[in-house]
Simulated assay, not measured.
Amino acid sequence: GDVFGDQIVASAMIDRIVHHAEVLTLKGTSYRLKNSGLDSLPSTRPENTAE
């Protein structure tokens, strides 16, 4: 939303981009977060993911 200035436009563009794509979810520890003191990003923690 910040890039396009509108949440609806951003959502529509993302929807069109991933419509025919295969979305891969990577699990495991992140090399980028290795020395940050975090195990994972908040959005990937089990309590924040839908089943």
Rank of each mutant, 00 (worst) to 15 (best):
D15L: 12
V3T: 15
L24R: 10
H19Q: 12
H20L: 10
I8L: 13
S30D: 09
S30Q: 02
A12K: 14
T44P: 00
T44Y: 09
A10G: 14
D2V: 11
R45D: 02
S40I: 00
T49W: 01
P42I: 13
F4S: 09
L38C: 08
S30M: 03
G37Y: 01
R16H: 07
L41W: 03
E51H: 14
A10R: 05
K27E: 04
V3R: 14
H20F: 10
S30Y: 09
V9M: 12
V23C: 01
T44G: 01
D6G: 02
H19F: 05
A21N: 05
L38P: 00
Q7R: 13
K34Q: 11
D6F: 11
T25N: 07
E22Q: 09
V18C: 02
D15H: 10
P46I: 14
E22R: 13
H19M: 08
R32D: 07
R32M: 07
E22T: 15
A50N: 10
D15N: 14
D2I: 14
I14R: 11
A12W: 05
M13D: 05
E51P: 06
A10D: 05
H19E: 15
I8T: 12
K27I: 06
K34V: 06
D15M: 08
L26A: 06
V9E: 11
T29F: 04
L33P: 00
A12G: 05
